[in-house]
Write a protein that binds this DNA or RNA. Structure first.
Lengths: 203, 203, 203, 203
DNA sequence: AATGAATGAGTTTTCATTCAT
DNA sequence: TATGAATGAAAACTCATTCAT
């Protein structure tokens, strides 16, 4: 049993090694320009081993999505259980998303670049993305129940708008069109929460 | 000269025929999955002809971006010259973007799906996208100058947030995750302007 | 119209050029050991051109079967319309099959070697083989109707036996286990017709 | 020594287990489409183990031929020592071949499908096939010596014809083109012996 | 201008075989 | 003996692009 556990752990480690390498490789050249051999080389393993741990090149990308994104969604979900005000919850959610850029820029790079790819197949499979929206939506709904947020906004649409604002900022950073240093990240957090909560209008 | 003009017009028509077909083809299968012969077939011409009018498959996509997007940006720019309040200008800009979906769903589909692709090459070449951001940014700046918008928000970042909110809604429609009927489009317009101008907070 | 005809003829010629090369290539190394590049090289054309004229490597083999075999079946069918005795018809049919070896050894080599391959798919698609059996079967049936052949033999089974005897001789020649010179071919013809018509028993 | 003997017996059992599994696997998918892991899975062992008992995938097929075929040839050889008439010997030989289908359809399936494959290498190694022909040839020769069979037929060619007739019937059964129920097997036996001994001609 | 035959580099994937444990 | 992770060569197939007509 110890042997089995060790073996499984070793396998898991290998899998992770390849997955991390894939993130770096995809981030460098983009998914389509990236050959399976690039992943293997980046991971320091033989070509065929990638196929031991993943069905196909596509499956690798899907795993990147599922597992990397999953961590972020988990963090956002955790926020719900905290006894914060809706505004605080929204702020913390935005912070998590935006700071992921600081902590895992390659992961964000890949997620941002490839998330819209082959809309039909990949997106439907990766429910994690949907979970992120649902968590945001629940925060909005709670804010409306507690009369903190305006009643006239469809929560689902509001969640999409919040998510869109965040993703666009990440995109700006990924593409180097927006400055993304540590201070900028804090500014972005303040600005996006400011706009989303209080609006652009000065009143 | 009349002859030349006629020829040029005929050429322009052919070019347009191929470009429109490309939009439909890209919208159906995505840029990468779409072969040059698919474009030609959709246009009803031999596929060698695509190379008479465009340098490469990439150049076709770039033209789609430049020309289709250009129309939208032009419309947004036109708004600036109108004597509306900043809020009205923002509302109209959002309306233009969102209604483009109703009028040219295939174009939007392609723009949304492929805009993040090959960040290095394509994006830099297509400055039209940048122009859209600048137009939004100028609207925000004007709002701040006129003391209608809050002073503490970086205009550039605000423009990105506005754009991100809009793009995400379009994505939701494209992927069928958000309802996109005529009434939904109007609702989305009201909601996105509401959030961006007045915030989520009920005060 | 002349242009179209010429073009089609040119295409047909190219197709034939590749098909003939495939026969030579398959005959040399066997279907499985033969790469598509071997076919292209043998034909003196570029790699990809094979895929212009054939769906896949498998489709090439199928075409070899269908077209090469078709010629032989056509010849056997022609015999039926002649006013020969059943024995004569049988003799001529055997002669056609056996002499194909002399005239197109490579074709026979391929047919013999690969005919049993992937029984499910290929065989069922290539009806030409079935036609050969039917022609032989009709000859047997006519022989029985005319009271020349024995009544107690199921014609279908008899046709298979005749065909099996012929194929085995071809196999012996292909594999170099039976001598296959011109004189041997004549002997084989006489022997196989002798056994099939009059039996081994000396009476 | 007892230990060694036991070990060897256990080894032999394992070897047999893998070989039987290989027959089933080859019969199902054909030799080429069958991976080593398919054999191992069918045998219920790890696929590295196949390489403990066999040099290579090819060696497994060769062993199938040698050992399975060997049993059949042995049975045919045994017939020679019986004090039967040549016709009886021929009938019994045919019966053995045809009834093997009933008893070991998977074995026959593999032998029939793959026997013509890679003529150069495999065939030369598997002399068992040659032995079957020789046994048939000796039966014919004896029949000629005893003035029961016609003198004008080359015995070697006659043996090939007999074998071809039998193989074709097996092929028909394997491919499902000829009915292969118990009664059909008996009919086939009667028919093939009838044709080969007495001919198609009714006299 | 228009056609589509021809090219061939590039990429994924498969799988027999080896080898460390 | 038994396992299955690791290797990497091999090959089919795709498709953007060129070019002769």
């Amino acid at each position: 049993m110890a042997t089995v556990a060790t073996r499984t752990a070793a396998q898991e480690e290998r899998r992770r090694q390849i997955l991390d390498a894939a993130v770096r490789a995809f981030a460098k050249k983009g998914y389509h320009a990236c050959r399976v051999s690039d992943i293997a080389e980046e991971a320091g393993v033989a070509y065929g081993l990638v196929y031991h741990y993943f069905e196909s090149k596509d499956a690798v990308l899907e795993a990147v999505f599922r597992e990397m994104w999953g961590a972020m969604v988990g963090a956002i979900n955790a926020i719900e259980s905290l006894d914060d005000s809706p505004r605080q919850q929204l702020r913390k959610s935005c912070a998590i998303v935006l700071r992921t850029w600081r902590d895992y820029p390659d992961v964000v790079r890949v997620l941002v670049r490839e998330v819209a790819r082959s809309g039909e197949q990949l997106q439907r499979e990766v429910e994690e993305i949907a979970h992120a929206f649902e968590a945001l939506q629940r925060i909005v709904e709670r804010g409306q129940r507690e009369k903190v947020f305006r009643q006239d906004l469809p929560p689902r649409l509001a969640a999409w708008i919040v998510y869109g604002a965040l993703e666009e900022i990440l995109t700006g950073w990924v593409l180097g069109r927006l400055p993304g240093e540590d201070q900028d990240i804090k500014d972005a957090e303040r600005t996006v929460v400011g706009i989303l909560c209080d609006g652009l209008i000065d009143d």
